[in-house]
């Protein structure tokens, strides 16, 4: 698992080099997953219907999530730290404006500019200290507080991310509430290892109920499929139940056939002793 985590390998500006960036335009599986996650994130954003909004895409990469925003008629501005990924985005001729910037240094926009913010698989990068001067806690706080400032006061921010452990989740949610956000973590398909997706849904307006998480219809957790006990009886087809009178008589019979010294059967055979013994 840890070997497959790109955050462990190199800082984002190094990891997403030209070769890695190329994957995001050619690998249809990566594209599919990114598009699906973006669609879900935009759904969670609860933007007003039929009104074009200005959305900030944090860690936009090659602009796959931006294209989904375009399809739904919104304008977007993307930020990313990797120039190779942004170059790919330019190549794809996305409509949004792109900015090369480190999220941990803050979001450089005027207050109240955006109607919403999405981020697909970017937040976990902020939990790493790639330079000696980096303090993840501080960087997350700067990130969340500047983001809070540049969102309008009914906006939501939805982050899809891959937390490495429970501490990371706690760190992220704590820093976001410190910055003034309300909201919480939403886990889609919590019972599946692969399809499980973490969404941090934050809103600026005040406490609001979280939308329901998606679950797989087939795995219903309060439905028990089989019991071990019943299976045991099934396996013993044709045999007597152990320690029963029939079982003991059969066993004595077998021993007699072997020529062993066996007590004769009586009405007391296989009766339990009374408690006085």
């Amino acid at each position: 698992m840890s070997a497959r985590r790109p955050e462990r390998k190199a800082p984002p500006e190094m990891f997403y080099n030209e070769e890695e960036a190329r994957k995001y335009t050619q690998n249809s599986r990566i594209i599919d997953i990114q598009v699906q996650m973006s669609e879900r994130a935009i759904e969670l954003l609860l933007l007003p219907e039929d009104t074009p909004c200005l959305v900030l895409d944090l860690g936009c990469g090659s602009g796959l999530s931006g294209s989904v925003l375009e399809e739904q008629g919104h304008m977007w501005v993307g930020m990313d730290i990797s120039s190779s990924m942004l170059a790919v985005a330019k190549e794809r001729e996305v409509e949004g404006d792109l900015i090369l910037s480190d999220l941990g240094n803050g979001i450089p926009f005027r207050p109240g500019t955006f109607d919403g913010a999405i981020s697909i698989s970017a937040l976990q990068w902020l939990c790493n200290a790639d330079k000696s001067s980096h303090d993840p806690r501080k960087r997350l706080y700067v990130f969340f507080s500047t983001l809070f400032a540049c969102l309008s006061r009914s906006a939501r921010a939805v982050f899809q991310f891959y937390p490495e452990n429970a501490e990371q989740v706690e760190l992220i949610t704590r820093e976001s509430t410190k910055a003034g956000f309300y909201g919480g973590l939403l886990v889609d398909y919590p019972n599946s290892t692969k399809a499980k997706k973490y969404f941090l849904v934050l809103n600026t307006g005040g406490p609001m109920p979280l939308p329901a998480a998606l679950t797989d219809a087939s795995d219903n957790s309060d439905h028990v499929q089989f019991t071990n006990r019943r299976d045991n009886y099934k396996n013993m087809k044709g045999k007597n139940i152990k320690k029963s009178r029939d079982w003991i008589i059969e066993k004595k019979e077998r021993r007699r056939r072997q020529g062993r010294n066996v007590r004769p059967d009586s009405k007391y055979t296989a009766r339990p002793r009374s408690t006085r013994f």
């Binding site: 120039s83 404006d97 900015i99 090369l100 240094n105």
Partner: peptide, 14 residues
């Protein structure tokens, strides 16, 4: 460059 503003800043400017 290429229509992308570079807002990266160095550590000592933070």
């Amino acid at each position: 460059t290429d229509g992308i503003p570079n807002m990266l800043i160095k550590d000592n400017e933070l």
